Simulated assay, not measured.
Amino acid sequence: MTEFALDRFDLDAFVASTFAEDLGEIGDITSAAVIPETARFEGVMDSRDAIVVAGMPIAEAFFRALDPNVEIDALVEDGDRVPAGTDLMRLTGLARPMLTAERSALNSMQHLSGIATMTRNYVKEISGTRATLLDTRKTIPGLRALEKYATRMGGAQNHRMGLWDAAMIKDNHVAVAGSVREAVRRAVSAGIDRIIVEVDRIDQIEPALEAGATHLLLDNMPPEMLRHAVDMVDDRVPTEASGGVTLGSINEIAKTGVDFISVGRLTQSAPAADIGLDFAEI
């Protein structure tokens, strides 16, 4: 198995907890009742959609956890863009563990490949501009590391991984602090290096920069306002457009000159890819 490691993600623990959820205290009663213990299967996992692949090492880990001797031939790699009908993985091994692991492996591949595929479509729309696509923290609890991995496979960059790696001052923080300037001043005084400040009005830009913002998130601004904001910032800090970005609007937003565009729907709303697994007894 290809080594797979993500920061703040334990693959073995993820596989174990997923199986614990699916098998409960008794196990796969259907396979145990219907499939002989020594029966062997050959299987082919394939994509019924054109997709960007993500999750191959995860799927492999599920099969190997129940049958360490299973033979797996990975035919593609994460990040590959493949047409509908592409074979992704071939498996040969004991039938019972293969059937037991099937759904967990497919769920992971379908979800992560769906995210990677949607991400690649957004990246394609901003090709040729200076803008870079970012994901957000709008992830399923417990799956952030995997979902953000999938956006990388689709060509995006990760925004904050959590609340710990950068300050992001939003409207509620400003409301409590009293002003953008005061909120940023407090973050600077706390010794925080990365200070992202959300602004939704042009008159908030200079106070944020003067107080020490290192990145401006231009929230829900129409394209003309974004152009004006980018001109005002004049490359003093990176600029990021955010809020309501769709596949149909992202190209126009990118042409305003922003450095980044963040899209929550990459992880929040990506449809699962159609991936199947067909078995035959041997």
Rank of each mutant, 00 (worst) to 15 (best):
L6Q: 06
L6N: 05
D10K: 14
A16R: 11
A16N: 03
T18F: 02
L23H: 11
E25W: 13
I26G: 00
A33C: 09
E42K: 14
G43Q: 07
V44E: 15
R64Q: 02
L66M: 02
I72W: 00
G79F: 07
G79S: 06
G85V: 15
M89H: 04
M98Y: 03
M98N: 01
E102K: 13
S104C: 13
S108L: 00
M118K: 09
I126C: 03
I126K: 05
R130H: 05
A131H: 03
T132P: 00
K138H: 06
K138W: 07
G142R: 05
G142T: 12
A145K: 03
Y149N: 12
A166W: 04
K170T: 01
A175Q: 11
V176H: 00
G178P: 02
S189Y: 04
I202F: 13
I202E: 12
I205R: 09
I205D: 11
A208F: 08
E210N: 13
L218M: 12
N220A: 05
M221C: 14
R227I: 13
D234I: 14
R236Q: 05
E240P: 07
L247G: 06
I250Y: 01
T256D: 12
R265W: 04
L266T: 04
T267V: 02
Q268P: 00
I275A: 02
E281H: 06
